[in-house]
Design a protein around this nucleic acid. Structure first.
Lengths: 249, 249
DNA sequence: TTAGTTGTTCTCAGCATGAGTAATTCTGTT
DNA sequence: AACAGAATTACTCATGCTGAGAACAACTAA
């Protein structure tokens, strides 16, 4: 059996194949009741002028998770550890690595999915000035294979709402049941029965807990002052909040 | 704006960081009612003598999916396109890339999950002679971070049985309801109520379809000759076949 | 004040589930 | 040849969850 140093030598030889590993982030938020994704306009070749998911190289000293959070912070203009950025939920989606997906060289892209409450517009004049929130209906013809990545991310987001309390990542710390319902409506693209949703949310253990507070005022067009809730400690919803069969398609 | 060739030059400079991309496969099958995973014994440094998930480098001319299928074929001794290997279901699990997870260099490993019907033992004397099926209870202390990858794979497999017809990937082309039930029992590690399972499987549209045939003989210890079914065309089970809440934990 | 909207709670029928029972058909053994 | 044990399949029944609709009160905008 060869010794360890011989193996390391063989390794180094193989490793010099020109391979890059990047992260791309599908960052979702809800603005004005619409599900939106964070996109950047590419200034560089290839696909200059086209929109793309924010992303970049994974540095030698960081893991993919850290790289994704860093990229998200850079593009939104929020500092890591800064308020709103701490509330985002980040999870790995999947990795895309077919030969030819980047015309420059072999690139493996680890895609991430981020759920954020309503964030401020990326700061003008900063590095992030080219980033913007785009309603998903308008997010088409993206650079590289980012259309596919976005579609996969939306699929994942829609099904995660069913069996996890992730909808709470889209709203503020204190929220009303109606706000939570609007998250489901925006992500699933369908209206939900207000009464049944109310009953369901309150009956699933650990989904939400009461704050005892009441909102300062009712809805814009009327209605009583709703009660306020915060996220519970459940990681999984039991029983789940399932979509209607026709919508799953 | 710089032109494209200037960008390509900048790219080449960055790309020579010593980075490798591999695939690792969590291949599951059921043998004698036990859920088993395919493992190889490492002959080389590091972790020589320890067991590990089968895997290897993604070649320059292939995508990650192809690489995973090729590795699985090499380790099981089955040729691609050869009978049993065509029936395996293969899906990407997630990518592991924390610095230091491989002591030699920076390695990103794209993990795959494979579901296979009972496969023959890897051929002795072939390249795959060091591979073997191990009951998951005995698959511990694996090389690298493969314990984590295996655990993630099992989580995924268990929850996929709930809402997809993937259990049919563990059985032969024609199977009985009882065989299907034993798949669930083995993967979830709990016994299921035979009557309710029967009713449920037949009531979910597209899960199984009748072949009209009947098994040649009853169970080993008695019982009538069961009817035979084949997998239906559903990709998702509606309504899902949910685990009891206590088991999800 | 009025009209319209919304939060919240009920009611009710339908469906799915978990648990148990029973008829029937086998296999292996006495 | 008979028997015991076991497995498939089909039931029943009580319970709980769901979707749909209705009711009521609280509130906003006009």
């Amino acid at each position: 059996m060869p010794n360890e140093s011989e193996f390391l030598a063989e390794y180094d030889a193989r490793s010099y194949a020109p391979v890059a590993v990047t992260v791309d982030v599908v960052a979702l938020t809800i603005r004005d009741g619409q599900l939106c994704v964070l996109l950047v306009e590419r200034a560089e070749h290839p696909f200059a002028g086209r929109r793309a998911l924010p992303g970049g190289f994974v540095r030698v000293d960081e893991g993919p998770d850290e790289a994704a959070l860093r990229e998200l912070g850079e593009e939104t203009g929020l500092r890591p550890g800064e308020g709103a950025l701490q509330r985002v939920h980040l999870e790995q989606l999947r990795t895309y690595g077919k030969p030819g997906r980047d015309p420059r060289m072999r690139v493996f892209s680890i895609a991430y999915l981020a759920f954020a409450p309503e964030l401020p517009d990326p700061r003008a004049g900063s590095d992030a000035s080219d980033a913007l929130w785009v309603p998903i209906a308008s997010a088409r013809k993206l650079a590289f294979d980012h259309d596919t990545i976005l579609a996969d991310g939306l699929d994942r987001a829609r099904s995660k709402l069913e069996y996890t309390p992730l909808a709470t990542a889209f709203v503020d710390d204190e929220f009303t049941i109606a706000e939570l319902r609007q998250v489901y409506a925006a992500v699933w693209g369908e209206d939900l029965h207000a009464g049944n949703f109310h009953r369901k949310v309150l009956s699933v253990p650990g989904f939400v807990e009461s704050t005892g507070h009441t909102a300062a005022r009712g809805g814009e067009r009327g209605g009583p002052k709703p009660k306020l809730y915060r996220a519970g400690d459940a990681k999984l919803l039991h029983p789940a909040l399932l979509r209607r069969e026709d919508d799953v398609r």
